[in-house]
Amino acid sequence: MRRYPPRGDKPFRYPRAQEENESPRERRRLFESEEPKREPAPSKGSPDSGYAMPEKNASERVDSETAGQVSNEPESKELEWREPERPDNGEKTITGMGVESTGLAGTIELATAFVPWQMYGRTLDLREALRLGTLFPELTRTPPRYKKPGTRGEE
């Protein structure tokens, strides 16, 4: 199924994931709590390898509820990727101008670049649009007259 961005003709509401039962991240979290935790494979590679779980964390993850199932798992010789533990603060939303703008992915995550979505609004007169270089007034900027790195167009 193809998924497209929110419709421009409806009142805008980011993130779109909320329109469904649960966000992908919520689903993932629920799933993780249901599934038996697997014992990380003994690290054959470099101890610094990002794919090997540090032993301290591994022992924390194996809690009493799932410990029995874990022992039944055949030990894999392959290094296995495990989702790193992370604090549950990923569901914050940014709000500006009364619009939730957290992007389609649903949340703002650390170490992830994010550009706010443009919404369709007023468009410029065609002659003016060609002169300025865009049809959308909200994207127009004034070029800096003097060198001022990092100002993104403001004088």
Partner: peptide, 29 residues
């Protein structure tokens, strides 16, 4: 004119990036 186009293209790529994040977060599940 060309300068302004770079800003518009940046916006579009930013939106594509978000669509990709969305795509991968679903894919992952």
């Amino acid at each position: 004119f060309l300068w302004q186009r770079e800003i518009v293209h940046f916006q579009r790529f930013g939106e594509v990036l978000d669509l990709l994040h969305d795509y991968y977060s679903r894919q992952h599940v």
